[in-house]
Design a protein around this nucleic acid. Structure first.
Lengths: 188, 188, 188, 188
DNA sequence: AATGAATGAGTGTTCATTCAT
DNA sequence: AATGAATGAACACTCATTCAT
């Protein structure tokens, strides 16, 4: 083979797409994405057939990055409440540490760009640490899918993150309060 | 006689904008909006200087519509918990009954189109029924702004609405569970 | 109405399209066509929804131009052979006098751009002067559609035109010979 | 050892080009041609300096294929009229049997791609079986180049082929009528 | 005040050709 | 010699906005 297609370029393109979407929304031009990735405009389309495909893959890639660290560091031998807090901390910290990626995900999540397949793949990615089963088996969420528990976790987390960002010096206070709120919902 | 600008047309344009954004995202063409409003393309720009201005005003207008019914029906003499539940029901019911408007708001909320002023005006619009003061004075949210309490309310509500929409026959179950979760966060 | 859409611009666009196609084939850029027509690029698409639509309409328009003069000057009281010769002269002369349009028609005719409707409309446009019915009723073409007679007429004419163009000083000789050949095919 | 360029690949490329042009017009991408030929995109340009060169050579190659069978089977000892009919049959049959190649030739013939040299080479390729000299020496075509006689032959043949293709069950009727028409032009 | 024709910068995507491997 | 990744100039088409009517 003349030259293998560079996995590095794929990654650069997805990271560039995330950055562009974070800054300019899903309307960010492919030309900008290519420029941010350091490749020619045409090159983008050799790695992704359409802009939509690029954005879908980017979404999943960034999701993976986000959950990767969380998943690595799990200690299933710890009590449930500690695991929950660990998950909470990992998620909130990652979002705060990576505002660009977090913003890209938010932007993509509300558009029609994401396919059913992408949404399914994302749902499957939520770390399964035995937390949500417990939650949705509890009295409050009895009878609802675990995805609803996931969604509530994320909803509370994201609202918390937004306010933590506004008052950076009070991040830990928000983190604690947000987790306390979540915990009281289900875990007491 | 010079005709005065028609307030009715303004309203039609904003409703048309909401519909267009719900269906096609913020990229919906102004030409489509004008068509849905039953006016000529150029007329839109006699009522709103730019598309962004139209979308900002539309956002606030739809928000107002959303909270209007809630505000109308408040009975401050009822106990706090009942008022909370009433607010919850009004919000969830309105979103479920008006999916187009709800979707338009979601779309607009994540874009860069909304100005600081718009966001501030929206925050001020959240019905003040004495609920959130109580909540944020409670032990969990002590020291945080009441807007954080608002945000948590909306976060839990919106996640609940999304799942209720997926399982229309279980709307009441979701509504009850969602409120129970919210209540446990702060009100017990 | 603000301003009526200008019929003149439509015509200019079609003439410009013919010119562009004659010079650069069906791949001629819409930007060039707009420039030749003296309008902005975007204007083209307010008059024709797509390039294909423009080219189809252009084809029929040029065809009409071509047959218009022939149709005007017919004298059905003359004998058949004179009518045939008149049609022949009109066609050959028009093609020679309008090489750009003739070339545009040739280019368009071989591509897949022309729709079934366009081809049908074109076929209906061939001047009906009672000639082809006679021809196809004759012994040589008995049982074939009159369109086959049309096609043979045009085939012989177009070959003749091509050679007449190469030797402009012998145009009349080619015209005479070509008609003689056509005549001998069917009319003796 | 340096591999010599493969004559087989040249041929494959030209056949692939013909196929691609037949299906997608002269705008057919070189990448598609290479794929149809079973070689890499870049390889095409090691055999032909440009796409235009490839198409010119392809045109001549397919023309050669077309006349090859006709030329092989000539019996100059037969009377003129039989040789004419034989040529006619060979041509019509080849075009009907090879619609892809025939279509490729039609497409290429009208474009600006074909150079003067290519057109000259093609003209020289028309089988010389003593027919056209006779034709152009006859009373109808006296004084015109034999190429004009060739052109009339092809014009009548190609119109005939087109209609024969539309009514496949009447191929022989069209072949006979077409030849009768041609014959009456010059040979009676 | 209302219209809608006109505009041209901008968009996603294609493709002939080059060149590192 | 063969490959196919990389390129960037084009391309068809869109759309927010202006302005003549």
């Amino acid at each position: 083979m003349a030259r293998p297609k560079s996995e590095e370029k794929r990654l650069h393109l997805m990271l560039a797409a995330a950055e562009a979407v974070a800054e300019r929304g899903v309307g960010a031009p492919t030309a900008l994405i290519a420029k941010l990735a350091g490749v020619a405009e045409g090159t983008l389309f050799r790695y992704f057939p359409t802009k939509e495909a690029l954005l879908n893959e980017t979404y999943l890639y960034i999701c993976e990055l986000g959950w990767a660290s969380a998943n690595e560091s799990f200690d299933l031998s710890r009590p449930l409440i500690e695991r929950a807090r660990h998950l909470w901390d990992m998620h909130v910290d990652w979002c705060l540490a990576n505002p660009v990626w977090d913003r890209a995900l938010s932007q993509l999540a509300v558009t029609e760009i994401l396919t059913k397949e992408t949404r399914a793949a994302e749902a499957a990615m939520f770390p399964d640490v035995g937390l949500m089963e417990q939650v949705s088996a509890g009295e409050v969420l009895a009878g609802h899918p675990t995805e609803y528990a996931d969604a509530l976790f994320l909803a509370v987390a994201n609202a918390t993150i937004e306010f933590a960002r506004r008052e950076p010096e009070r991040v830990e206070a928000y983190k604690a309060s947000g987790f306390a709120a979540f915990r009281r919902m289900f875990l007491d």
